[in-house]
Design a protein around this nucleic acid. Structure first.
Lengths: 214, 214, 214, 214
DNA sequence: TATGAATGAGCTTTCATTCAT
DNA sequence: TATGAATGAAAGCTCATTCAT
């Protein structure tokens, strides 16, 4: 996996070993879920022995799991926020750009898929995960969406009631998220992302734009 | 769980025991996933010994798992199809009824949630499951949706292009499905179903209706 | 195996069922040893259910095993004794006929092989088996051999000391028995029976005959 | 069994633990056969826990079994070959020494008996075992015997045709091997080794020697 | 007689975890 | 830091046996 795997038993800076192990853990947990993942496999992937895992993650499997999840989060939403905050054009242009971003990430990045899967699988055993997803992923996404809606309403591009229906942000978000679920569940058999994107864009415009687009 | 659990060791008609075990398996698998589920726990829930599990499901854990999944399927889509086939009113009324049905089931029935969760979680290990979901759940749902769209177009209620955009059915379905995912992932913290339903209905109407409803 | 297996569940004369089960048990034990044999497999081979095994052999697996062994014994030595008692020709002719008989049975009859194998495998757990083999198989064989030797000495065909060396009968018997062991151990790779027979005959003659045969 | 069994849980050089476990496995398999042997019993005999067995023999029971068999082999034939290669006396003296060696080992060494028993018992399930016995034990023994026969013929001690009858080596070997089988099958009730040896020697001489020893 | 549902003990195996080195 | 030998608790599964029908 890594093009320059360090030799077994080699002394490595602590931080690098830590990252290496974390990376291995993400792969293992993502592929097999919490219960199905084996510490020995994580150690193998990381090129270390089982014992060392407990040196870096004294809490054992659960500790490693939480750390693995946490390492999967940051970049996803950050990009969307950056896009929105620096955007100069119309509200219509911005929401188009955001939807495009969603489908683009869906096609490219496996990290969020992994996260969603683990959330679904292990939310029972690790209640913090559900809360984490709700507060760190879902809520910010909805907030961002609502900001755009409000901006569109204020600029007159969107219908006056586009920011008054509380569930609208969910409905706008759902196709992207569901596309991600389909992707990770059905693999190659999943609905085509380009097709979803086209229908999603058109629907969103019809729902939002002040003047029907004919 | 069962109000009249048969006494341990009591002889039972084969079919009843089979159903009892299956029920117990659904609960156990739903709660802990495939790898986390324990045969002993299934046996306990069913009020039998481990050995008997292998009498009824000679293929062991995998056999039991497949059977448990299969037992969760039938009723969901059947109801929707029945509703659609016997519907007398307008296309608008039908799609409203179908969306209502979706959110109603989401609130009431844990069975499909369980199914979806297991499908998503274990599709890697049981490729048949993904195919099963695609062909038995998703495709029929999309087909039903497209039928309604076509009927609405033909009757003049819906925009003329409402049945020509291939991804539209996905976009219309996504909020319901994602609502189900949120429900089973976030539990009490999930977005409110009534809220989702209201926004979903309004959006759908704007996307579909020939004349804007002002 | 049987050309006219009775239908499952059919009422059968007790003796026939008994024999059918015994036959099945011999095959199963022969193929897998005592510990490796499974009652369910015996029942299957016999076309009955497990429960019935305990009706016919109340002592369970051990009971069935002893009965299976006992059913394998009778015919082998009987034939040799019959041959010897009815023999009219020379002692040389008789011992030749007996050696021929040994190699002929080795090639044809799997039953004694089975017996030997079980004896070797299970003699620890069933001490009676060793005693049974010693007294019912080995001793009679040695006795028969010694009778022939004595007859040959008395008739002047064999050296005068041919019946005074106590281990000679063992040495004469060993190649046949070892041939049987090789057969069942090495299967197709076992030493050729015809080759063994030729060498055995020539050696025996040189050891026994009063006048060297040149 | 071992006079200085290491304390439970004590760390031991890998090679020693390996040997300790192997030794325990030989005993257990020898005593109960493959199917009857229990991993827990092997662990107990070796003074370790079951888990460690799988550390040293990742292939589990079959792996351990093969290793146990293989560990029983080396010394037996080596001794005979050494004896033959360093022998200075007559061919008659050599064959006498070899036969003596065979009966001596039979009386003393349980290892080869164990091997033979396992070979015979489990050859079905482990076809490699049969091949192993044939190529590593039986063939070399026959080769050694034939070498001696040829040497005796060339020196004029043995009849000119003593090396031209292909099965003669088998016949000469059989009493020793069969004696071993009797030993392990009948235990104390087996034919006396000294008696067998005497008869075997005398017979061999009569079969082989150029001039009858009358 | 005959069935097969039901048991329960015991088997092999896996795996997270510990700890002496 | 890093190793890997060693543990022990459980897991999945098998199978001889019993017994109500």
């Amino acid at each position: 996996m890594n093009d320059a795997l360090p030799a077994r038993g080699a002394r490595l800076p602590s931080a690098e070993r830590h990252a290496l192990i974390l990376e291995a853990a993400v792969e293992e947990f993502a592929g097999r879920g919490y219960a199905g993942a084996r510490m020995a496999a994580v150690a193998n992937r990381a090129g270390v022995t089982k014992g060392l895992l407990y040196h870096y993650f004294p809490g054992g499997k659960t500790d490693l799991f939480r750390a693995a999840i946490a390492s999967c989060v940051a970049p996803a939403l950050a990009e969307a926020n950056q896009l929105a905050s620096g955007f100069a054009g119309s509200a219509r242009g911005l929401i188009t750009a955001l939807i495009d971003l969603g489908y683009a990430r869906m096609a490219l990045e496996p990290r969020e898929h992994i996260l969603m899967r683990l959330l679904m699988t292990e939310a029972d055993r690790f209640p913090e995960l559900a809360e984490f997803y709700r507060s760190e992923i879902l809520q910010p996404s909805l907030m961002l969406t609502r900001q755009v809606l409000r901006a569109g309403v204020e600029s007159g591009e969107f219908r006056p009631d586009a920011d008054s229906l509380p569930g609208l942000a969910h409905v706008l978000l759902a196709p992207i998220l569901m596309g991600s679920v389909w992707r990770m569940t059905l693999g190659e058999g999943a609905p085509d992302a380009a097709m979803l994107r086209a229908a999603h864009l058109q629907s969103a415009m019809r729902v939002l734009l002040a003047a029907p687009d004919g």
